[in-house]
């Protein structure tokens, strides 16, 4: 019985350290003061690279039917959570006007700027969470009893 085997890509768990690039997102605070630009907030999305750690731990693994089932289960859970958070962030920007007015006053900014900043940060973090969580959950589901061996 021969099967066309498919393996996960081979990467090092050390690539997970790239997740530290997510801290570049804080540069948005500085650039906003200098040039009113808050593009660097999207770098918070790099926190998702921490998922490479778990992907690396499962690198060159045979993707059998249980693996594929677990992958679907992990992605469904991660992306539904991210969808929920994104929706919540969108709802928060459209309601609770009094809170935004107070926040804008405290930061000495316009309400639209505060909302845009909030949405940028939330979307970047949600992207990071989705990337990380899908890998983490896959590893968690797949290795529920990795330590046990019985021949």
């Amino acid at each position: 019985m021969k099967h066309a085997s498919k393996y996960t890509r081979k990467i090092s768990p050390r690539l997970g350290l790239l997740g530290l690039l997510g801290f570049l997102g804080f540069a948005g605070l500085a650039t906003y003061r200098l040039s009113q630009g808050f593009f660097p907030f999207v770098f918070f999305g790099f926190f998702g690279f921490f998922g490479f750690y778990y992907e690396g731990k499962m690198s060159a693994t045979l993707m059998d039917e249980r693996f594929l089932q677990n992958k679907l289960r992990a992605e469904r859970k991660a992306y539904s959570l991210c969808g929920g958070i994104s929706l919540l962030a969108l709802m928060l920007t459209s309601v609770a006007e009094a809170v935004w007015v107070q926040l804008a006053g405290a930061l000495a900014l316009q309400i639209s700027e505060v909302k845009l900043m909030f949405l940028t940060i939330m979307l970047a973090l949600t992207f990071a969470l989705g990337s990380f969580l899908s890998q983490y959950l896959l590893y968690h589901y797949d290795c529920e009893d990795c330590s046990e061996s019985e021949l």
Partner: peptide
Amino acid sequence: TQEQLAEMVGVRRETIMRLEKSLYNPSLKL
């Protein structure tokens, strides 16, 4: 061995292990 059987049917040893513990419901093909 679990390893040999896994290789014969094209899955990982962990899948055979979970099957033997009745923790995984396999596809009809498997």
